[in-house]
Amino acid sequence: MVEMVFVDATWEQEIVLGKDLLRYFEKEKVKSVGLFASVQFLKLEKVREQLQQSEIRVHETKAKRTHLKTQILGCDAYHDSFEEDIIATSDAVLYIGDGLFHPKALLLAQTGREIKPVVIWDPVSEKMKIITQADIEKQLNKKKANLKKFLAADVVGVMVTVKPGQQYMKNALFLKQVLEKKGKKVYLFLGDTFDYRLFENYPFVQVWVNTACPRIGTDDITEMQRPLINIREAYDAEKTLEEMGK
């Protein structure tokens, strides 16, 4: 195994929330926030100070896969991805960082509940943005449709990656047993990149199950012609559909 070094690439400037964001919290009578950031933007001393001065309690937790508290990864897209469910116990959700991949995880993590908006402060552009359930509606609808197709499917393809960080071979083998007991025929596929255009090579597979990055089964599905679900939902798709309100 080759030795690896990780460099956080920390944002060098002090992160200061904009007045428009603080005014928004005041207008919405926000008394507590669940605070999250991507690894580059964890120097949040000033942000905490600003929120406390605005009499807003700051809730922070550690996601189970991250190395640091408050940090979020794109795969933290389930309500139990965190040590404490601060999204449920806070009035608002605040994300510090650029891009939409990470804050969308905070919307997805609320699937099956009343989805609170995620307020984003981007330290690079120094702009505020709010994303809501409407921003993941297409994904949620596709996920529900795919779950229904999975329940009806007789032939399933389970995709396993050789990338060590995303490889869940044991889980795939266990799922195969579970699905075979339910009368489904399961084929295991191995690859290193999930290019969904290659699904067309295997027309006998009715529904695909992803065991690699969870965001393949939440985001990428909107671009796919063929149905795909994540392994987590494949154990009990009926229950997931019920939780999502069918």
């Binding site: 080759v2 030795e3 990780f6 956080d8 690894v39 189970k64 896969r65 990864l73 869940y168 065991t211």
Partner: peptide, 20 residues
């Protein structure tokens, strides 16, 4: 023949099996 790999923008990842 790579002796060392350096990745920027991320830090140590704790892979969980149970939570998938």
């Amino acid at each position: 023949g790579i002796d060392l790999m350096v990745q920027w923008g991320h830090n140590i990842y704790h892979k969980t099996v149970k939570e998938w």
